[in-house]
Amino acid sequence: MKLKDIKTLITSGTVLVALALYMIFGDKPPEKVEDTQSSVLIPLEQAEQITGNTPLAVDYVSANDGDTISVNMNGEKKRVRLLMIDTPEMNYDKGDPMPFAEDAKEFTINLLENAESVQLLFDKGPETDHYDRLLAYIYIDGMMLQEALLKEGYAAVRYVNKPNNSLEQQLRDIQADAEQQDINIWSYDNYFQKDGFHPEAVNK
């Protein structure tokens, strides 16, 4: 065998060994990141079918707290109160914010400021409350804001009034998961009770 052929074999063998070692010990290809939409528990299409309503596109303006925002709808600024959930109060005129109030507000703002689409979906009952706020589900890029807040333990199911409660059970199921995991507001016993939030349970 010629010297040239031996060198070729050695070179080829080295490449093959290196390739084999890389396949065994090298970095694995990154796993496919799960599509965010696959984790949505209350898809917009399902909410449309259950409520019998069509979502309305709006533009986000600002957030008062975790569960109350302002939007621009048809050229008019409107306040929206998220249906069936309650986040801790900011207490603008009453002193310090309740525990997790600022977290809930920041969470809501971050989602809305980075959204490509914001949609408002009414339920089967009144579209406004006695403060003239719109009562609705808010969908941000296909995920319901109520769902997101409940998942993160920043909100509790409250102010449930028929017939504006078509998605009540779904929201309660999401809350139950956060409670079981002791996430945020649920990390303190008796912080949230039937009559609302009790900061003394956190600050004691």
Rank of each mutant, 00 (worst) to 15 (best):
M1T: 04
D5H: 04
T8W: 15
I10T: 03
I10R: 03
I10N: 01
A20M: 14
M23W: 12
I24A: 10
F25L: 08
K28T: 09
P29W: 03
E34I: 12
D35I: 07
S39L: 10
V40Q: 05
P43L: 11
L44D: 01
L44W: 01
Q46K: 14
G52Y: 07
N53D: 03
N53H: 07
T54A: 10
L56G: 00
A57M: 08
A57E: 13
D59S: 14
A63H: 02
D65M: 00
G66W: 11
E76V: 14
L83K: 04
M84A: 05
D86Y: 00
T87V: 00
E89H: 07
Y92F: 06
G95R: 06
D103H: 05
K105G: 04
F107M: 11
T108W: 13
I109E: 15
L111R: 15
L111T: 04
E113R: 14
E116M: 06
V118H: 04
L120T: 02
F122D: 07
F122V: 11
K124Q: 15
E127Q: 14
T128H: 11
R133P: 06
L135K: 13
Y139G: 04
Q146P: 02
E147Y: 07
L149Q: 15
L149H: 07
K151Y: 10
E152K: 12
Y154V: 05
A155Q: 04
V157M: 05
R158A: 14
N161I: 13
N161Q: 14
K162Y: 12
P163C: 12
E168T: 00
L171F: 13
R172V: 06
D173M: 09
D173E: 15
I174N: 00
Q181Y: 02
D182F: 12
N184A: 15
N184I: 03
I185L: 12
W186G: 00
N190C: 01
F192N: 04
F192R: 10
F192P: 00
Q193Y: 09
E200K: 11
